[in-house]
Design a protein around this nucleic acid. Structure first.
Lengths: 227, 227
DNA sequence: GCGTAACCCTACTTGCGGGTAGGTACGCTG
DNA sequence: CAGCGTACCTACCCGCAAGTAGGGTTACGC
């Protein structure tokens, strides 16, 4: 009775949201497989066939949850990033929005996202979202690199090339965000703002330097003590 | 018949390894839930009750797989990192070993690892491994920071403190590695060595600067256009 | 060569949970 | 107040895969 037994008849749109809320909660604490449709129905204060009538199959339901949460996340970020700001400012805002969202939607994130990777039916869906995210970040990086080039008369040395390098870097950035989201989940006392700052500190110093053409040298020896 | 129908009777230790190989393969391509014990048994060239006799329940079997692969990974890294080397060299070696392992054990990594997160029964097991990994990295960072302090007469400004900051950074590092492992999985043509170099470039420039006390300033405005 | 213990199989049971058939109550429109 | 559509329910089905019973066969020690 989490959503509360409204007792009364509700229009479809409302019930659907309630069901999604319930589903997110249950999937989150049980995992996709262990979650039961009955349990979800009960949590939504409704009975099973309703769920099937409105949201379809268990898989479809999960995808619906995933979709809703992902969209919300994207929007939360998009709402804050204005494309004319300097790259670091954009990144900073994006990151803040991200951790803010994650802090606010513990279960929405926690398991939906974690769950979806690897679980074949959903991997695709999730990968799409992730890809969009990464493309956005990669675009940001690209603008940052051209900007840096303009600023300091272009000695186009071994600055990262637009293609592979930047996408890889975008992956890395997203990876940092995801991992720090986990860290934040384990330390609920930490403020989202602080986590965001931590990430920015770690990430921007390196990214900025790298985008300007700096790099790390493999130092001395080529080691390889057997395989 | 992947492992090949040996036809003959084999000592327990051998069969167990064959079963684990088969299980890793099947779990990897189907996911935990969709994988069937029959299928695993068939892949191992053996029949189901054997699997139960030797490795127990499906869950236990999965944990066994996870455990074996994780141990191998840890060992592959530990084998290469010598604690007396300079921090960046250690990191570099560790990262190389990591991506090398992942490239070699595509399925061992791919799904076992991805699968385990979120799936309640295994989350704990996996979290343990991850934690050990992170502690190692955090330790590395800590030695790096004291080292940096010694080198440049300690103007102990706002260098990251031993506790929270470093652990968070370790999380970030591990996150980068995981995420780039995904990227590498999607681009099989990329050499592990190259991916490792990419990561090092991205990560060390930032980490090094940060460990020396550099930081990023929140720039100008405190934005927040509503929630 | 013979017992015994470890390997290994075919064939079954079982229960859980996704999915559905069919019927009831409520409210809105005329 | 007749009638209709939509929200909603109870009660059931049934397939699938995890897990097991019980029996056969090969190797190895003595």
């Amino acid at each position: 009775m989490t959503t509360g037994p409204t007792g009364k008849r509700l229009p479809r749109a409302v019930r659907e949201q309630q069901m999604l809320d319930a589903a997110v909660a249950v999937f989150s604490r049980r995992g996709f497989h262990a979650a039961g449709m009955d349990e979800i129905a009960e949590e939504a204060g409704i009975s099973k066939p309703m769920v099937y009538a409105y949201l379809g199959t268990k898989e479809e339901l999960f995808v619906a949850c995933l979709h809703r949460e992902a969209t919300r996340l994207m929007e939360a970020i998009a709402r804050v990033v204005e494309p004319d700001l300097p790259p670091d400012e954009q990144l900073w805002r994006g990151i803040r929005a991200f951790f803010g969202f994650v802090a606010g939607h513990r279960d929405g994130w926690g398991v939906l996202y974690r769950q979806a990777r690897g679980q074949e039916p959903f991997a695709a869906e999730l990968a799409g979202m992730r890809r969009r995210m990464i493309e956005v970040v990669a675009g940001l990086l690209e603008r940052a690199v051209t900007r840096a080039a303009d600023a300091s008369g272009g000695t186009g040395a071994k600055r990262p090339a637009p293609g592979r390098d930047l996408t890889a870097m975008a992956y890395a950035l997203v990876g940092v965000a995801e991992s720090l989201a986990d860290w934040a989940a384990e330390h609920p006392d930490e403020d989202a703002e602080v986590t965001a700052a931590r990430m920015m500190n770690f990430v921007w110093l390196g990214a900025d330097a790298r985008l300007r053409g700096a790099s790390w040298r493999p130092s001395t020896c080529r080691d390889s003590p057997a395989a």
